[in-house]
């Protein structure tokens, strides 16, 4: 008896479940790095195509870290790198905030614009870790595994990101 143990991620079911689990995280990670949803989507596709080509060599539980590594590789091979400009959507959570006065609303918009500029100005490593935690709700340990760094390094980047945001945001 052989061939009973499904190796790698060549089975369609396995491949698709890896996609469903990893693709959204990977897309967001690449979005935080490139600032382009389109470019990020392309790199996700290229990375998964490579996963398909190498499907017999990658164990399902290793696939997410493998994909993150390969996607960085694909990213580095791109020649032109544009300045990062991130756009966000607003979560539909509760009613729209109401403001006591138009001044308050204006001030809030300015605060938000400066916050977004400050996030875009963070070093790549700090920005990615920070947003994966804040926006995608990934735990420090999960981020560490995906990026192949230690949990301590993730925590340091988080702390540094907050301190830099505060500094970059000092204008208000």
């Amino acid at each position: 008896m052989k061939g009973n143990i499904p190796a790698g991620v060549c089975e369609d079911v396995v491949y698709e479940s890896v996609y469903q689990e990893v693709a959204p995280k990977l897309r967001n990670f690449l979005y935080y790095r490139t600032g382009s949803a389109e470019n990020a989507g392309d790199i996700v596709q290229e990375s998964f195509l490579r996963l398909w080509e190498n499907c017999s060599k990658v164990l399902p539980e290793k696939a997410s870290a493998w994909l993150f590594r390969v996607s960085e590789n694909v990213f580095f091979k791109q020649k032109a790198r544009a300045k990062v400009v991130l756009k966000y959507e607003w979560r539909q959570r509760g009613p729209e905030p109401t403001y006591a006065s138009p001044q308050d609303e204006l001030e809030e918009r300015e605060f938000q614009a400066q916050l977004e500029a400050a996030i875009a100005a963070l070093p790549d490593g700090a920005r990615e870790v920070f947003l994966l935690n804040r926006m995608d709700g990934l735990k420090y340990r999960e981020i560490a595994e995906l990026l192949g760094i230690s949990q301590k390094a993730v925590e340091k980047r988080m702390h540094r990101a907050l301190v830099s945001l505060r500094e970059l945001h000092a204008g208000i």
Binding site: A23, A37, Y88, E89, W90, R93, M135, H169
Partner: peptide
């Protein structure tokens, strides 16, 4: 800042 971040999300995928 963290309050504002809680209400932000990347583009849908």
């Amino acid at each position: 800042m963290m309050g504002n971040l809680n209400r932000m999300a990347p583009p849908a995928f």
